[in-house]
Design a protein around this nucleic acid. Structure first.
Lengths: 250, 250
DNA sequence: ACCGCCAATGTTATAAATTAACATTAAAAG
DNA sequence: CTTTTAATGTTAATTTATAACATTGGCGGT
């Protein structure tokens, strides 16, 4: 494919929309007619729709649609959406991020903008969600697939993690108590989480308030091990204080 | 919502697109300005995008997008089904089977009965399909996720394969010619296939007849390397003979 | 019922964008 | 080295969108 066409395509997928005027600034010295024809090609290729004065990315449009859809279907679990939305603010472009398995993180994956990211995840459903983002590189750790929470674990998954670096890890927890820290219900899964947390530059835990005060068999982290806990507004005030006190630690 | 707006919305979602001129025929006596404003409302509501001279349904556009992903799975569905059905007969209970990525194999995964199986696969979508089977143990090889065919590959995926045994491998091929053998379009993917075939006790290739005579850049197997080729009835007769001659070889 | 208000729609002039047709240039093929 | 083809540029004509203002009709308040 044409070099210029690729650049336009990338630009349009990142911004969601482009104006002919912007294109002319991007490619000075080219006639508007040529750029117009390029947009037509993108439209024919099913990448974009031409609008008055420019074009819009189809991927971006369907992302908006999905967002609306997801928003509605998540109304009963509005907390997850709130948490994911907050977490989105800590997603940094061009970073290596780890996405844990779990519905809250899945929600985050659905909200991801078309930014450039290197994503590693332990959840095949999250990987398939993220692959819709044209600018993301997706890595999936290998291993045995847990039927209950759709997460991968096992010795090979641990080996996989040895070979990658993680800037930011977005982790899920099934329970938290001051006595036992962050806990989950599966040993192998806990091992994965431990390793990810050990390797990550920054650890953010996404946990809705219903998990507070509950303990599951396997502890994968203490409060000190994580940099931030993102939750909804349902936390008891003293919990809120202790969990969010260590924001921006490290 | 406005009665007229609903009708426009319905119309646009059915046809996928509407021209202002059509709208004026549908609602004679209304000024173009009003209809234009209606389209703008639909755009603000996230239902459509305005294009030159009309508007397009966002639902329809994202359907097109999904079609791009699913296009291949919709192509030759009848053939794929026939092939998958045949392949199902070679699935043996309590065996370690490998399922390659690809739409034909996906079709096979959907047909799987609730038999006890140890499944290893390179496709996250196939893993998620198989996990519905309560008696199956699912392993997913790790690695980088290819956006085009949703398959995993990379060095870690190869390492993963070192540690497992495979009784029967159900493989997909993007092309076959007598000169080049079985071929695929991606180097890393080809390496995975090679390793699987080397390790598997029995190799069955699922390939619809449209792939016959086509070559892609990377050869992953010769006719001698596989035990059986399952195809539909669309093969030229001499192809049929040479491909199926080695049934039950080994 | 009367008044005034507001929202929806219509009208017009102006600005902007698209198209079509043809001219030019550059690149590939022979 | 010429021929051919594809890509790009140029211009004018057409179509479409916008903005600003005018009109209509319903609705609530007193």
């Amino acid at each position: 494919m044409d070099e210029r066409l690729s650049r336009i395509k990338q630009y349009i997928h990142e911004k969601g929309e482009i104006k002919l005027a912007e294109l002319q600034q991007l490619f000075p010295g080219l006639s508007s007619m040529t750029l117009r024809r390029d947009l037509k090609k993108l439209e024919d290729a099913g990448e974009a729709v031409r609008t008055k004065g420019g074009a819009k990315s189809i991927r971006h449009l369907s992302r908006i649609k999905e967002e609306m859809y997801a928003k509605r279907s998540l109304e009963n679990t509005a907390e997850k959406y709130i948490i994911a939305k907050k977490a989105l603010g800590y997603m940094e472009e061009s970073r290596s991020v780890f996405l844990d398995s779990g519905t809250t993180v899945m929600c985050l994956a659905q909200l991801l903008e078309a930014q450039k990211l290197f994503i590693t995840t332990s959840a095949p459903n999250i990987a398939l969600e993220c692959v819709k983002n044209p600018n993301a590189t997706i890595n999936l750790i290998g291993g045995n697939l847990n039927r209950d929470n759709l997460s991968l674990s096992g010795i090979t998954a641990l080996d996989f993690l040895d070979n990658i670096n993680i800037d930011i890890a977005f982790m899920a927890a099934s329970g938290f108590s001051h006595k036992n820290g962050f806990t989950c219900g599966n040993y192998a899964e806990g091992e994965i989480k431990k390793k990810v947390i050990a390797k990550a530059g920054k650890v953010i835990v996404l946990m809705d308030s219903s998990k507070y005060g509950k303990s599951l068999p396997f502890t994968f982290a203490r409060l000190n091990d994580v940099d931030m806990v993102i939750s909804d507004d349902g936390l008891p005030s003293e919990a809120e204080k202790s969990l969010t006190a260590n924001k921006y630690k490290k």
